[in-house]
């Protein structure tokens, strides 16, 4: 055998052998895409700007057909009042659907507490909604895969597949989930997915007069929201659960859970 021929054969063998190997290391296109998808939605709440008008809750309930009378909501606003004698009061009457038109704190069981204005220390409002976590506890525990995370980072519920066991409600550390009073399946914030995909803002973002709620694509470095999340001191709720929430908060207090 000539040297040249030998080399040629060698190359053929090597190439031949390597083909099946490369064929086996298969590339999951979804994984490549997931590593760098175009869009990853994130939410930004500026608690300093919120005045507790509750228009976001009203808009959310209207847009997403959650009956006003039902005492559940995809988004809600909490009021925190600290008194100078170091007491803390929190409430969210009817999820703040009608705002905070009463200066008294709702203590539940039909009791209300008037706080002396001179005694009020710090007080603020915190809007809340589903955090659309990066590693959501809720989608992990769904026994039938009825709740899942889309490629652009939104956690949705498949209403025709949900069996209504409530395990995801238990697993969510944020209380963002509930049973839909009419559909009898689990319901939660969708970031108004139908609006996002039509190029509209979500209903609550749209309704906020004070720009306390905003939304953006965290994978776009030029997005103003991404800029704020990158450059300012923002926090997330309950990071100890390792769920990696995607709703970021400006002006969070440690008592806000």
């Amino acid at each position: 055998m000539e040297r040249r021929e030998f080399l040629q054969k060698c190359i053929m063998v090597v190439v031949g052998a390597s083909v099946p190997v490369s064929a086996l290391t298969f590339i999951d296109p979804k994984k490549v895409f997931a590593a760098n998808p175009d869009i990853q939605w994130a939410f930004l709440v500026d608690t300093n700007k919120c005045v507790g008008c509750g228009f976001c809750v009203k808009a959310c309930k209207t847009e997403n057909d959650i009956p006003f009378e039902a005492h559940v909501s995809r988004t809600w606003v909490e009021r925190y009042v600290y008194t100078k004698d170091d007491k803390r009061y929190v409430d969210s009457p009817q999820a703040a659907l009608h705002g905070f038109i009463d200066s008294r704190i709702d203590l539940g069981r039909g009791e209300f507490k008037e706080i002396d204005p001179k005694n009020v220390g710090k007080a603020f409002f915190v809007p809340k909604l589903c955090n659309h976590c990066s590693s959501p506890a809720c989608t992990q525990v769904c026994p039938v895969g009825a709740t899942y995370k889309t490629d652009d980072g939104v956690v949705l519920v498949d209403r025709s597949w949900c069996i209504g066991c409530g395990y995801c409600i238990m697993a969510c550390p944020y209380g963002a989930r509930f049973f839909h009073p009419v559909k009898h399946v689990v319901d939660k914030c969708t970031f108004c997915y139908h609006r996002l995909s039509k190029g509209l803002d979500s209903a609550c973002v749209n309704a906020c007069p004070f720009k306390a709620r905003r939304m953006g694509n965290i994978h776009d470095p030029n997005d103003p929201i991404t800029q704020i999340i990158m450059n300012e001191r923002v926090g997330v709720l309950k990071d100890e659960f390792g769920t990696k929430p995607q709703a970021f908060y400006i002006g969070l207090a440690q008592e806000v859970r």
């Binding site: 990066s134 895969g145 009825a146 899942y148 498949d158």
Partner: peptide
């Protein structure tokens, strides 16, 4: 993560009608 689901549901959500109008004050 944990993303095994009925794929057509994403479109079902996308196709929900919107009620509030144009965005931006």
């Amino acid at each position: 993560m944990y993303s095994y689901h009925r794929k057509s549901n994403v479109m079902e959500w996308k196709n929900q009608p919107a009620k509030y109008g144009v965005s931006g004050r």
